[in-house]
Design a protein around this nucleic acid. Structure first.
Lengths: 305, 305
DNA sequence: TAAAAATACTCCATAGGTATTTTAT
DNA sequence: ATAAAATACCTATGGAGTATTTTTA
């Protein structure tokens, strides 16, 4: 049996004429006759009772026809589904994004993305880098927005921009009065960190040349679960911290703490899109990347490829 | 697209492994890979996202898979239907039978038919010969039990038996006292007939050498709609009539009229099975014919082929 | 006699095979 | 290094064609 055969019997049933059915199927009459005969032999039944003046479907043929029609309808559904998904922007794009980026980047890009690609549907997840990478591998998300991630087996990544760090401290902190904050100034300051798992914690330690915070004892247990909490701790006088530029833009307006840009080399993290190298809808990622690049504020440097 | 292709994608989706899927489908891995690739190209989408360590179905692939499974289920249904109907006795046999035969023949054969072929289902129609022939041509019935029918275009017929006629008259009728009723004795008797359309009416006229009853006037309008009515008319003294043997057997026990067998040549009608020569379930007709022949009483002569 | 299905045959597209390569872990 | 999918290339089945025959109304 065969989809072609089913198309043939439907055509014969509807035209009651092998020649006309063959025409409708764009094949010759002997071809169609031969296939139907073969199908009847394969099934061991007679589907059409025919003379050279009449073609009539048998009761068992009628029963089969019902299913044949259903089958052909479903093949059409498959073709329609496929057609609708030939556009890589069709179907929801599952995006994972780290918590230190999501609340500050997503508001910038959602509206322009909608404007440029009205048909795109997003499903967002906000999770730690490791979780996002696992979910990428498990096909639970299609793309992850991560910071400072090395290339990983099975994944490709696409650099988006460098996001400078800003120092967040109390307004009366000595560093707030320095004209130019240098790399050395940050060595062994009282740095407050996000909790384990946030890549920003590791990145801040690296910029401040701190090796293993947990081994130092006392402060090791004071870790904030979010950037918002971290800034509250700074405001309460527990120490300083580093804040990525996109978050700093928002925080500067909402808090009473001083925020100073760090301009020396390596005082930034690089944000990239990561995705499985087998992911079939790369044009959708390209679209996403372009919108992100176009919406960045001036103090965040786009990485050109 | 192709039923084979759908089988392949179902196998890959279930095994998550091209090699195992190929094995399950009894083809080589390159064959299966090639077909799936072709299908993906034809549909313009990616069904499986694959590395050499993992195979994962895409969301659109998942959507297609649902329909593919439904399609494969329906092809199984078609095969099952066909298998169940490979027995020619499967499915109802639609039998048409003339009214002068039905009430007397059917009781003889129904039980034995059920005994020999328990699976057979019958659908009976009792109608005049012309109607039965039309319904045969229209595929509304599969076989007709008729009397004295010539071969007709598109139909085959299968002689079953010769059914002698009996003379039905009042007990005091002169012919009831004759030892041997001869052909000539029936010339111009007061013959009562069934209504127009009953083949028995024509047959009786022929046996009695009556050409065109309707031209004779007076008696022409007195026609009975059934054999039962006809016998009532005889009993009421309106005339004689000819009764076929199977009916005579029953009538002789139920009425007060004399019934005398006619033994001279041509004093019988021949009953046959008629069916479209394209009818595909001839073995079922053979079975029916055999049961009928085996159940006939001794005074009805089976026609051997 | 004419119309239609069946048959006979030839051809070629493609599903399928084996051997090998590529790729990613 | 290994496992698995992809590629290359060959083979052969079977679907499609044309020409013709058979059938039957």
């Amino acid at each position: 049996m065969n989809l072609r055969d089913l198309k043939y019997i439907i055509a014969v049933a509807e035209t009651q004429h092998f020649g006309h059915a063959a025409e409708r199927c764009f094949v010759s009459q002997p071809t169609l006759s031969g296939q139907i005969k073969k199908l009847e032999e394969e099934l061991g039944i007679t589907i059409f009772e025919r003379t050279n003046r009449s073609v009539e479907i048998t009761p068992i043929g009628e029963a089969i026809l019902i299913h044949a029609r259903q089958i052909m309808e479903r093949t059409d559904v498959i073709k329609q589904l496929a057609l609708a998904h030939q556009d890589p922007l069709a179907g929801p794009l599952h995006i994972g994004i780290i918590p230190t980026l999501s609340p500050y980047l997503m508001p910038l890009i959602l509206a322009p993305l909608k404007a440029h690609y009205p048909q795109i549907k997003l499903v967002l997840s906000e999770e730690l880098s490791d979780t996002l990478l696992k979910r990428l591998h498990h096909h639970e998300i299609d793309v992850a927005l991560l910071a400072n991630k090395e290339k990983e087996a099975g994944l490709e990544s696409h650099p988006l921009f460098n996001e400078p760090f800003w120092l967040a401290c109390l307004p009366d902190h000595p560093l707030n009065h320095k004209k130019n904050i240098k790399a050395k100034d940050l060595d062994s300051i009282d740095l407050l960190l996000l909790s384990e798992g946030h890549c920003l914690a590791q990145q801040a330690m690296e910029v401040c040349h701190i090796k293993e915070r947990s081994e130092q004892g006392d402060m090791a247990d004071l870790r904030a679960a979010s950037l918002e909490t971290l800034l509250q701790l700074v405001e309460a006088g527990f120490g300083c911290t580093l804040v990525p530029a996109l978050a700093a833009r928002i925080a500067s307006a909402k808090t009473n703490i001083a925020l100073r840009p760090l301009t020396f080399p390596n005082a930034h993290r690089s944000v990239s899109l990561a995705y499985r190298n087998t992911f079939p809808r790369k044009p959708a990622l390209e679209a996403l990347a372009n919108v992100i690049r176009s919406q960045l504020p001036v103090d965040v440097s786009v990485i050109s490829l």
